[in-house]
Design a protein around this nucleic acid. Structure first.
Lengths: 136, 136, 136, 136
DNA sequence: GTGGTCTAGACCACG
DNA sequence: GTGGTCTAGACCACT
């Protein structure tokens, strides 16, 4: 994998999430799915901002969140790198966040009146895209 | 279950969702799960506000969203009632919203580093709680 | 037409509709008639409140309804924009709402004792103003 | 036409209009369509309340509105009768109300994205049910 | 009593 | 600056 290649990220203007959130989610996804591996060098703040056509401050905010959460390591003068996996959150916190995401997701999906089987298949499909290397 | 009984709803201060959103999600869930059936009378705006320790306007906002979405009927002077179920959204809109919810959910959950199987089990469990009529 | 220009909206104090409803109807009309096109930037919540001499919360309520119905996209820090058109309601729901609007309209108009021809002409005229793309 | 026959009126619980408003609209419609002619005797307050399964106060309120607007004459001890047609509202007031009804109707209908022709046909059909005897 | 509307003013997150 | 949320308190129409 070559360093400094453009991230496979896209900002969707229709997406209700704030831009920096889309970046954070996207990078976490790329790391979780293995497309960004340990030590990979991320685009610079200015580079990614240029690539996505957004304000560098927005990228900086996203990177700083990812660093705070332990996904990235910032090395002054060199850039940002995918950090070694470690227990980034306490088990309590992880469980709490899973509950929250579940509640929100189910609340949204119930309104759509899909059969449970269909929803489960879609969830499984999406997870398979992102998590196989962690569980296989 | 007697009418006007307190709703099985709780507001979590740690939850990032705004309060009125938590109420909307919760009521939709109670309706979908069958705990609130057609014609059931909901707690009054002021009553629920008192029960939850929040401002009546916040409850009114939640109830008004539920009414706009067709889940509740409001009758001034009488109260709020669970409305007759009907297909409110087009198929395309439903599919679009499912995609949106999926993307958001997976984005949230990936960061937690749970095995896909665990997540799927939890989703299945939550759906089973809410959609008993659909799966039984 | 330059962005952020004042909306061609007026609040009629004699109108029995609540203010936020008049705004919702007015904006939907401007969108349907093509005076507000895809991506157009609407006046800010505070700006429109100032223009109309009403409380910003009232404007926010109207904008929030329009966003919930899919007419507008809101981006915090950026503003509100006309959303891409899509089929949001099922055919049955649309038919139900047309029936409801018809019943109400005819109920209101009968009391006025106008000849049917006059009423029809007026309706046709109003529709022609709003749906030029559909009729031209 | 026999006196004191039940009115062809129905109260729809799903209808967002308050009950007394549904009665007022319904009676005006029956008068306008000719189903209730000059001098016809209306059901008593208690009788109509019983027929519709609602509170007599609600019926009384509706009848009092109709009397105030000049549609009915109340004759103490005898009951209520359809009043002789006279100019009940000023031309200005009638025009204002027509405008209001039009604006509301068009605002509601635009959101449904029906072709103008379809809407016009439906309006014409509804009006034909109520107004032919006035215009033919 | 009920729901609905409006105002006023505060605070937050976003860009 | 932007939109979004929440509180507080007033007033209205309906039953």
């Amino acid at each position: 994998m070559n360093l400094r290649s453009p991230l496979m990220l896209q900002i969707a203007t229709g997406d209700p999430r704030p831009i920096h959130r889309q970046i954070v989610d996207g990078v976490r996804r790329l790391i979780a799915s293995g497309e960004l591996t340990l030590g990979a060098n991320l685009p610079s703040v200015r580079g990614l901002a240029l690539q996505l056509g957004i304000n560098p401050n927005t990228v900086a905010k996203a990177y700083s969140e990812l660093t705070a959460e332990g996904w990235l390591d910032a090395r002054a003068g060199l850039g940002l790198f995918v950090a070694a996996p470690r227990q980034r959150l306490s088990d309590e916190e992880r469980a709490r966040r899973l509950d929250e995401a579940l509640t929100r997701f189910v609340g949204d999906v119930i309104a759509l009146d899909y059969p449970a089987g269909v929803v489960l298949e879609r969830v499984a499909g999406e997870l398979a895209l992102c998590l196989p290397k962690k569980t296989g």
